[in-house]
Design a binder for these strands. Structure first.
Lengths: 345, 345
DNA sequence: CCCCCGAATGATAGCGCTAACATTTTCTGC
DNA sequence: GCAGAAAATGTTAGCGCTATCATTCGGGGG
């Protein structure tokens, strides 16, 4: 507990936390000068700067950002909304955002929407209350109320992962329909004809739906279709992939390749094949999406599409920091994807 | 853009964002009454409440939390510092924290320390500047300056994952030395005698070091030791586990079991065995730590120790919210662990 | 020696909200 | 119908900082 004395009346008032005024008094300058030193602003004489910094050190002064934010109406906060922490993809995005922000002294205020636009709406409201300089959302699926709030506040907005609609401000991601199309074309070129599909909850993951549509479009171009499908409830997981492939195969349709909604599911499928004694690729080919590390490490590297989630986050954050006010023009940044032919398809 | 008129001079001033005063004026009440309605505080007549809420709705009012935080010196923010987003364990913890916080309207301010106490120190400083009501740290390894700051501010502190030192306020986690000991005892009881160890960067992950020490203690009790070890640089990963086991076996020492620093590494080791044609358990037994989903899904379920990261986060957040001021007594919450005997050891 | 200019510093007035203490209104019970 | 309590609302005064607009100061040119 620090003891600072105030006034000349000899009474000593104990305060636990020193304020800027205390720093200024100790350094023998006005509060505003101390403020400038702390913020590294304006022309300050070297000697003054040093005295203030010494005072800061001596008192262990930590600025009150709430007061700063109120006075300057700018917060150095960025609101981030991600659908889920269960899916490894989003921590990756978060990591990218974090790297970009940390470099410039910004702080991320994180909320998790559970893929629910109404939860997103609530979180947007509570994040806007902190006057963030930007908001990073996932996807294009927002409630009308959310759109209205974002319109009122004119903070910069990034919408991540997808690029197939017109963003509010900036979109960073990749084209999921195109990715699905690419999967279909690749597999057709490799000679596969009897397609199965294993997916997880679509209400949750709109983007896997877009890939599915792309895949179907590619098949339709060659007069093909998906012969058998199986969906599991809730978020994707290795276990669900394993069980789902088992269920799919029980349907008894003849298949030469199964496309999975993502790598988690596909890895599960792979493990089912191993357990069931199926020769991967020869008996049954498998294809995923995401390019997770686990897929690469499997005895047969998983064929999949790699997307650079880290870069999506990083580029989005960098783009937002470039300019404080929302520009008139929307920007779409396509970070692309890479089809990684492994040994499973 | 909203247009609100002020004063009676007929001049219309355009403001983009309505304030509490605007809400109050529209509802015909004083600002403080509007404030109380918005915060759901104090006794308010039903009719008044409704009028204020209507005004909020009509104006699209979003409270300014910076102002609120300043006036009330309480922020409904919780600072969270985690070492890494690369290791799946920490998003799990974050998820637990988030679930507990979301339920009570708190917001998490997240920082990533990269396992570096000096980065932790910087982040603590910048988080404290927001006047959080609590801080959630990982582990006990803090700089002196960090400890001083935490001391000055008297916010509530949780230190997660470990419980083998005296915490500043609350510790939630499990005993890593004990976990290591348990692994050793289990494997000895199963008849294993020739122990290998595969680890990753210790400077980064202090806790895997503690488990290692526990393991050695268990072995020493039976006059045994670790015959061969291999360490990889940087964070743990499946690929590194795979390569490390290969390197370890190249040393040529006879081994009947290899303990891995965690499940990522152990899964890599498993995949190496599959690729190298080694019979898991009969030729070489494997043991991990964490209890990740992927371990369970392998053709041979990985023998490992399961720790409930989600619960660590959730319980820590709940505990901190229980009481606002730091109690005199420290609390240690042992969430324990479960040894899961799979098919690899 | 004075004027002017840029560098350095300061005084004043809020930012938008809420704590703390009134004050007014509405119920009770008798 | 009235004291007394409780419910409902309002007044005042900041929270700690920074934007804005002065003011002071030193020194080089005329």
């Amino acid at each position: 507990m620090l003891a600072l004395s105030f006034g000349g009346d000899g009474v000593e008032i104990k305060r636990s936390v020193p304020r800027l005024a205390d720093v200024a008094r100790l350094a023998g300058v006005s509060p505003i000068t101390a403020s400038r030193v702390v913020r590294g602003e304006g022309p300050i004489a070297q000697a003054t700067r040093q005295r203030v910094l010494d005072a800061v050190q001596q008192l262990g002064y930590v600025p009150n950002r709430a007061a700063g934010a109120l006075a300057s109406s700018s917060s150095k906060l960025i609101g981030v909304l991600i659908p889920s922490l269960t899916n490894i993809v989003f921590p990756d995005v978060l990591r990218g955002i974090n790297v970009a922000l940390a470099a410039s002294g910004y702080q991320a205020l994180v909320g998790v929407t559970e893929y629910d636009p109404r939860i997103e709406q609530e979180i947007v409201a509570s994040l806007l209350a902190w006057n963030p300089e930007a908001l990073i959302l996932t996807g294009f699926d927002h409630t009308d109320a959310t759109r209205r709030m974002l319109d009122n506040h004119k903070v910069r907005i990034a919408e991540l992962m997808e690029i197939d609609e017109t963003p509010i401000d900036v979109a960073v991601g990749l084209s999921h329909p195109k990715a699905g199309l690419e999967i279909g074309r690749h597999l057709i070129a490799k000679g596969y004809r009897k397609f199965g599909y294993v997916g997880h909850d679509w209400r949750a993951d709109r983007r896997s739906r877009l890939r599915y549509d792309g895949l179907r479009a590619a098949l339709a171009d060659h007069g093909l279709g998906i012969v058998a499908e199986h969906y599991s409830e809730g978020p994707s997981s290795i276990q669900k992939g394993r069980q789902s492939l088992a269920s799919l195969l029980e349907q008894g349709r003849e298949l030469d390749v199964v496309v999975f909604s993502n790598d988690d599911m596909a890895v599960g499928g792979y493990l089912h094949c191993v357990a069931a004694g199926l020769a991967v690729r020869d008996d049954l080919a498998l294809f995923g999406f995401n390019g997770l590390e686990i897929g690469e490490a499997l005895p047969h590297a998983l064929s999949t599409i790699y997307s650079d989630r880290f870069r999506i986050g990083k580029i989005a954050a960098e783009k937002l920091l470039e300019q404080k006010s929302r520009p008139a023009e929307q920007t779409i940044i396509d970070i692309g994807f890479v089809l990684r032919e492994g040994q499973t398809a």
